[in-house]
């Protein structure tokens, strides 16, 4: 952990100016994420987990503190196309095929044509959608659409993958499958992943680092480095004692955040 952290937040504050006066969305957020980590942000709605992810992506600008991504400002990192972002909804273009959707960032970033095709094929295989490239989004199920949107975020060479509750709208069975696949994908690509969720099992199952947040104002209450093995984890790991201990600690952290509020 001696190398420079890939994401480094020091005293990050964010205040939104609204019609009802200023709203403190984030207060004094400090976090270091090393290269190759899988970080989950968990907390109740309104705790600023999505907002913090958007700050990393430079979709929001902090009003205080410093936030460095790959050693530069978040906005510079965005300009350098440092990350792929997966939103809550798949957000595929209905007028493009699945392959066309995955090609979108490659076209914008000016990858040469033959390279585009090769990359599309590669990521389609990576998310287990081989052979679906010529289909239109509406011909696919919700889970497959979300996998296509992950493929779109993986198609170009970004070191970081940011995911904002990507499986929030899916049922639990599909979600389990996709979680398993996401872990495989992470260990194969070696990317650093920032993952927002409000599911405790999901966060514990996936992460090497769990960031527990609480609302009003959004702040970090606990950072847990997971003792679970890195890389692929069988789903059954969720019945292990270690897993339940971490889940318990996350729950305690969430409860503490709520107690503060009352």
């Amino acid at each position: 952990m001696a190398a420079i952290p890939i994401i480094e937040a020091r005293g990050v504050d964010l205040v939104f100016q609204t019609n009802d006066g200023p709203v403190q969305a984030l207060r004094d957020v400090n976090l270091e994420v090393a290269k190759g980590e899988f970080v989950s942000f968990i907390g109740p709605s309104g705790c600023g987990k999505t907002t913090f992810l958007r700050c990393i992506a430079a979709l929001e600008t902090p009003t205080g503190g410093t936030l460095k991504v790959r050693g530069m400002s978040a906005d510079d990192a965005r300009r350098e196309r440092s990350y792929g972002y997966v939103f809550q909804a798949a957000g595929l273009y209905p007028w493009r095929t699945i392959a066309g959707n995955i090609r979108l960032p490659l076209e914008i970033m000016g990858y040469p044509k033959p390279d585009q095709e090769a990359r599309v094929e590669k990521v389609l295989e990576l998310v287990d959608l081989k052979g679906f490239g010529k289909k239109f989004p509406w011909q696919l199920s919700g889970g497959m659409q979300q996998r296509a949107s992950i493929a779109r975020a993986l198609a170009f060479d970004a070191e970081i993958l940011l995911m904002d509750e990507p499986f929030g709208a899916l049922d639990e069975i599909v979600r389990d499958r996709l979680n398993e696949e996401l872990l495989k994908l992470w260990s194969r690509t070696g990317k650093t992943i920032g993952f927002v969720t409000h599911s405790i099992p999901e966060a514990v199952y996936l992460s090497t680092k769990i960031v527990v947040m609480s609302p009003r104002p959004g702040r970090i209450t606990d950072v847990i480095d997971s003792p679970l093995p890195r890389g692929e984890r069988p789903l059954e790991i969720r019945d292990s004692r270690e897993f339940l201990e971490i889940a318990h600690r996350v729950r305690e952290g969430l409860r503490a955040g709520h107690a503060y509020e009352v």
């Binding site: 979709l59 792929g84 939103f87 809550q88 957000g91 007028w95 960032p105 076209e107 914008i108």
Partner: peptide
């Protein structure tokens, strides 16, 4: 907003936002 944010994450030039997103959406 989400579709525009997506293109922002690619650091998309405005002309490309027009061609690839705004015009097709407006058909």
């Amino acid at each position: 907003g989400m579709q525009l944010d997506l293109l922002r994450t690619y650091n998309t030039p405005r002309a490309a936002v027009l061609w690839k997103l705004r015009l097709p959406s407006s058909m």
